[in-house]
Design a protein around this nucleic acid. Sequence first.
DNA 1: AGTATAATTTTATATTTGTTAAATTAAATT
DNA 2: AATTTAATTTAACAAATATAAAATTATACT
Lengths: 203, 203
Amino acid sequence: MGEIRNAERTQKNILEAAKREFFDKGFKGARIEAIAENAGVKKQLIYHYFKGKAELLEAVLVYSATSEPEWVAQVPDDPLHIAEHRFRVNSQARADFIKFSAWEALEARAEQTSWNKGGEIALQSYASYWKAQQEKGMVPPDLDPEFVALALTALTTYPIIFSSITQIMTGLESSDPEFQEKWSAFLTKVSGRLLEPSEQTEA
Amino acid sequence: MGEIRNAERTQKNILEAAKREFFDKGFKGARIEAIAENAGVKKQLIYHYFKGKAELLEAVLVYSATSEPEWVAQVPDDPLHIAEHRFRVNSQARADFIKFSAWEALEARAEQTSWNKGGEIALQSYASYWKAQQEKGMVPPDLDPEFVALALTALTTYPIIFSSITQIMTGLESSDPEFQEKWSAFLTKVSGRLLEPSEQTEA
DNA sequence: AGTATAATTTTATATTTGTTAAATTAAATT
DNA sequence: AATTTAATTTAACAAATATAAAATTATACT
């Protein structure tokens, strides 16, 4: 309409709109029509550039993986601040992807599909990280490092996924910067308490 | 077919099937046809007994609320074991309801609907509990009790909701009794570390 | 300018799914 | 037994939604 024809730009518009739609509504909940409307395009164009709904989602996932900024570089050394760092990154740069993962997990359970082949690796490597930390003596020996990883994953994603629950319990939305500050501080305290050597070492 | 006509029993069959379907797939994902099939009934009967899909869900919620066993009675006194107790109850008697709440939270965010009027009260009263515990000196004063409540909610529901993630990180499904035992023990340790008075009380 | 090719829209189809209305069958009542 | 009422099924509708084919419009190339 307003602009000159440009396949590349149009495809990008579609991908951006699709990303918003999929990440917000999940695969089943996403509507091709809504994506088209949001991209300022007739929906049949989507079938022209991407084969179908499933293929569009896959394209969105690679697009979103490549286009997102690198954040692995600046991971803090101190395991005490890992959780806080994770939460900050999750709630800022990756909030919508986290929400999508939640959709994915629920939908995958209800049916049998599973996108996100890269997600598993990330989760497992996170578990490996805590195993290594335990071997370095940074995690109390009585705590299973895989459970530590799971617990911290829960604590760093739950408020983002369940913002309404967060709102009800704390009075703050998880998108609120005030919540993010306070929860970050809380996570650091929790990490400290979790990782500090137990008092009754041995009798 | 096999049995004699009995409106009450049929309604119960429908409610049971609907409960399974809604709790597993969420509201949008649930299929009336699947419910009918599962209940051994033609789907039009559902419209006869319950007005429509939305009303059926409401009926399921009250049915499920009244038919579930009481568990509030045997809550442990010691806040150290609250999390473990919550997790045990959640993963056994209430696993499917927890999953439904997850669907509800995600769907409510995507749209504007919200069932589950009773859920808010439960969450708030859980927050109040921890506030009271802190006043009794059972929670370190530097930890916001509402955040403690949110954290423990996350830890006691996340593995149930995201069983696949749990499987990837720990090698165990959250429905596996082995996982439930280990996670329960882990939660108690975490609670202990979280609630124990800080070492550097004041300088 | 004229033709080929790419970009986009119009029109149409098939399927899924929630819902309604009518018809049928069984139980209850007199 | 006849009639009324309740339980259940058959048939049909309508809206939503993913998808396909054809038509149109703009751009590139010679």
